[in-house]
Amino acid sequence: MNIQWIALIVVLFLSGPVWAGEARPLADDPASEARLKHLAVELRCLVCQNQTLADSNAPLAEDLRREVREMIAKNMSDQEIIEFLTARYGDFVLYRPPLKATTTLLWVGPFLLVIVGATALIITLRRRASKVVDVPVTEDEHRRVEQLLTEGGKRP
């Protein structure tokens, strides 16, 4: 038995179907994989209908994940990685649109809606309070209606 055979047995022993062995993570470096995932869920796969880079199996998405992995390995910051991608594909790759002149309305809009809505409601209620004189549906009438309806329901 020569040294190659021993090596082969050792390799088989280490890599073959080992009972109850703990499975290895798919990624060599789980920490950077977690960072990739963190980034990729906010990035858009360009060729897909509407999927994140993390979810897509499209070849381009795989390539881009590979690029991002390499950039993470090079210790580039999230900001640098995002700049790398937007320089090539534009803001379209970002699922979180950056705040710019053109996206101000997008980011401010929802809160503007609440403020406008709340103001309108308060003004309306005030104006209403000064205008309403008659009370078409009083508690008393309600009770009467309920009573009448109950009686109606009991009739065969």
């Binding site: 360009l46 060729v47 070849p59 381009l60 390539d63 690029e67 090539r88 594909y89 534009g90």
Partner: peptide, 11 residues
């Protein structure tokens, strides 16, 4: 596909 990525090729 590296050159493609640098040129922003997506299809």
């Amino acid at each position: 596909g590296r050159v493609g990525i640098n040129y922003g090729v997506y299809g």
